[in-house]
Design a protein around this nucleic acid. Sequence first.
DNA 1: TCCTCAATTCAACGTTCTCTAAAATGATTA
DNA 2: TAATCATTTTAGAGAACGTTGAATTGAGGA
Lengths: 114, 114
Amino acid sequence: MADQPHTTDCRHDHVAHSHELRSEEVIDAAASMASAMGDPGRLRLLELLFDGRHCVSELAEETGDSMSAISQRLKILHNARLVTRNRDGKHVYYALADDHVRNIIQQLFIHSAE
Amino acid sequence: MADQPHTTDCRHDHVAHSHELRSEEVIDAAASMASAMGDPGRLRLLELLFDGRHCVSELAEETGDSMSAISQRLKILHNARLVTRNRDGKHVYYALADDHVRNIIQQLFIHSAE
DNA sequence: TCCTCAATTCAACGTTCTCTAAAATGATTA
DNA sequence: TAATCATTTTAGAGAACGTTGAATTGAGGA
């Protein structure tokens, strides 16, 4: 609500924007989703979930990281709605939330490998 | 190279992975790309670039943030190969790197708005 | 050359992140 | 119920992040 730190004395002409701008809520949600994918340890987990659900101990075994670390990473991914969580007996299984998430991650990988 | 903090005593069977895993380099590149998009201030800049190139002072004016802050955000986006940089006289113009980046951001917004 | 505008860099500061290690919770089996 | 396995939570330490404000660089015009 305070005045903004507007340090520009720019005198040259700027063209107005021709497209709709997203609301702050959408920007924040999208940023927090991207942020959740923005860590190598978490992105590796998402990749491991590409072939279906996996439980925490399995993911810990495959990555060589502690269960505590894996669990905390999964919690962040779950809060960002990127994975689902299901308890089955002693184990808790995580899986990719939907095909939309799948697509975003896949595109990210394709663009990065170029 | 040291031994891994492997705290699992898991006795139940795990199924082997049926898909190719990405190299650490690809994972790191993809994570740093996602991480660069994972901040509201930076994502807002990417959105503002959707209708074409803009210079730093223009983006500062539109967002109400300082040029220093904008410039540092753009540097991160540029390092992540999300935007291109071109000097034109006194001004430096930034633009989205390519349609691939466009798609990723668009999908991110669509999924977030749901 | 000197001055001005545009942009970048630097240093400092407070905030946020991510890990480890230990304690706590949930669920199954003896 | 007690014991055990799987997972989560908590607290704390160290690293990484993002901003502000000042100094610096780069380019153009007087």
